[in-house]
């Protein structure tokens, strides 16, 4: 069956990807419009404020009186038609900025939001460049052939692994015939080298 599939699959993958993205967007658009009840809005807001007297619990989690009061305030104010920002400001005026479960996206505290994506972006770029360099290194190393590289794998094979190696070979046969020979060679080489080094150590 795999063989049949493979023959028909030459250009399908990118299309699948587009289909997936399109579907996600459609689903997103369809779901985004749903209305929130007041209680849903309130319980969502409960998670955004810290309980001022308990260590690192939101008012959603905390069971002390002040948290219950604050939950009630949110519901009362929402019922009065106040906006989320108003309520937020009300609590910040009362308890200071640390009442917010995550810092505002303006001023100094915006750093908390900006730094991670920037650093991760740089990291990703660095990773790409390192990988590219490693690939370049490959060209220089290929002349040293497989014997030099195989010594680095001290543990590749023994008798107990025979079934597994069979499975690997099977995999290799299925995914690309040209690689089977090379890989077998590596395995054998490393086994030989290993035995040598073991005798030295032991």
């Amino acid at each position: 069956m795999a063989a049949v599939l493979r023959t028909r699959r030459s250009t399908r993958r990118p299309n699948l990807l587009y289909l997936f993205i399109a579907l996600t967007l459609i689903v997103g658009a369809a779901c985004g419009s749903s209305e929130q009840t007041l209680e849903q809005q309130a319980s969502r807001m409960d998670k955004k404020f810290m309980c001022p007297v308990c260590p690192s619990e939101t008012i959603d989690q905390a069971q002390v009186q002040i948290a219950k009061d604050m939950r009630q305030i949110i519901r009362d104010k929402l019922a009065d038609g106040e906006s989320e920002n108003d309520i937020s400001q009300f609590f910040v005026d009362r308890y200071g900025i640390q009442v917010l479960a995550s810092p505002p996206t303006t001023g100094f505290t915006s750093l908390v939001w900006i730094v991670p994506p920037v650093v991760l972006g740089i990291g990703l770029a660095a990773l790409y460049m390192i990988l590219r360099d490693m690939r370049r290194g490959k060209a220089a190393l290929t002349s040293r052939a497989s014997g030099a590289t195989a010594g680095a794998t001290p543990s590749t094979t023994n008798d107990a692994l025979a079934p597994y190696l069979e499975a690997v070979d099977e995999e290799m046969r299925q995914s690309g015939p040209q690689r089977t020979a090379a890989d077998n060679k590596v395995s054998t080489d490393s086994a030989t080298i290993n035995n040598g080094s073991n005798e030295v150590n032991g």
Partner: peptide
């Protein structure tokens, strides 16, 4: 990211003497 979130309140206190909370939403 997690370490940054744990340490940011300290950084904030140090840099602008204001206590902030970095919690679940972040």
């Amino acid at each position: 990211v997690t370490l940054w979130g744990v340490l940011f309140p300290l950084a904030s206190e140090f840099a602008q003497e204001e206590t902030v909370t970095v919690s679940a939403p972040y």
